[in-house]
Design a protein around this nucleic acid. Structure first.
Lengths: 202, 202
DNA sequence: CGACACTCCATACCATGGTATAGTGGCGGG
DNA sequence: CCCGCCACTATACCATGGTATGGAGTGTCG
């Protein structure tokens, strides 16, 4: 798990450097940004990562940014840090899905623990999403008919029934079925059903 | 969703009565407890519910109780309320899965919104768990051999392969297979695979 | 002991699934 | 225009799945 990248978003240069040194000291890579805008515009690596986000920032506040992560198409776990905290602020951050909410000064180890948790969570998400993306792209290579047949098959319909539903001959259904099994890269109906579950073809 | 029960755990009688009146006014049922112990010992209804939990309580504190819900086999969503809050306390509660963390005095509507959220979450959990319990109980009526065959079948193995793995004749496998399909109450392999997924028979 | 449940096997029969071969027709891009 | 892709069909053949019937050995429990 040493391949993680920690994106530090904080406009306090001294603090940034301190965090940077701390996080690097445990073998993680870091990238520092002085504002939300700078972070959003930057390229992010396609490896497990997390954001250490200050609340008080020039431009968009850390919390507003956190609430809008989805709109920026960012799904990195967030750890919020702040010097001036109150309870409603922390509750808002946690409700919005923050991994942790730390008030300065905090213990180094608390931050490192939260970072480890966040990176683990992101690694898991990436694994799941990579898997899903693979399956989804395969599904999209299916012709419309094949997709139709696949939906019927995973619904437990027999070839004969599928043929009736789609006004086809049974042979044609078998043809599409064989073809889609190849394209989906599965060798058993059981595997196909599992793919369909991930794709939510309920 | 008007069938929910709100369990209020608070030792302040006046506050309890106020909460009770507020929550009843929107058509929800309530049960009041002055301590964690009183709540734990009481019988809970088998309908969607949630806990409104004060932090400061005689005996076990609200937060300690929340951290140990699993040990009491309680899976109700929790809304924490408190008169004396600090940031670490709120973060701890939210990390432990609280739906919300409200500091007195709070707006009535905020509490009611959180309760609605909590009840919806619990209703969803109950639906999923009821479904799972049904499937699990069916699975447990299977004989050891039938369970074995089921695991092989949902792994995508052919009857012939299952027979080889378990040192059986193919007919016997078919026999168990037919029997387990009946007992599981499914009519297609697709449905069986979905059951297996819920049971995590990976 | 007897009833019962579980396990197993054989034979037979039919339905279903899967693949191959061969051919028809539509449709769009190089 | 021709090629490739998609969609469809027919025939044929073999593998696999599913059910029924009949029978047998084991262990448990009342």
């Amino acid at each position: 798990m040493t391949g993680g990248v920690v994106y530090i978003v904080d406009d306090d240069v001294a603090l940034c450097e301190g965090l940077d040194a701390l996080i690097r000291s445990v073998g993680l890579r870091t990238r520092c940004f002085a504002s939300v805008a700078a972070f959003v515009e930057a390229e992010r690596e396609e490896v497990a990562g997390c954001i250490v986000l200050d609340v008080r920032l020039p431009g968009m506040s850390g919390l507003d940014f956190q609430s809008n992560l989805q709109r920026f198409d960012i799904r990195l776990p967030v750890i919020v840090i702040t010097g001036f905290a109150d309870v409603p602020m922390s509750v808002r951050a946690m409700k919005a899905g923050a991994v942790d909410f730390l008030t300065k000064p905090f213990r180094d180890q608390d931050l490192l623990d939260s970072i480890a948790m966040a990176l683990a969570r992101d690694a898991e998400r990436r694994a799941a999403e990579g898997n899903l993306a693979e399956i989804r792209s395969r599904y999209e290579t299916l012709t419309p008919r094949e997709q139709q047949v696949m939906r019927e098959v995973v619904a437990g319909r027999l070839n004969k029934q599928v043929a009736g539903d789609l006004q086809l001959s049974e042979v044609t259904v078998k043809l599409h079925r064989g073809s889609l099994m190849r394209k989906m890269g599965v060798r058993s109906l059981a595997d196909l059903v599992r793919c369909a579950e991930l794709l939510k073809l309920a």
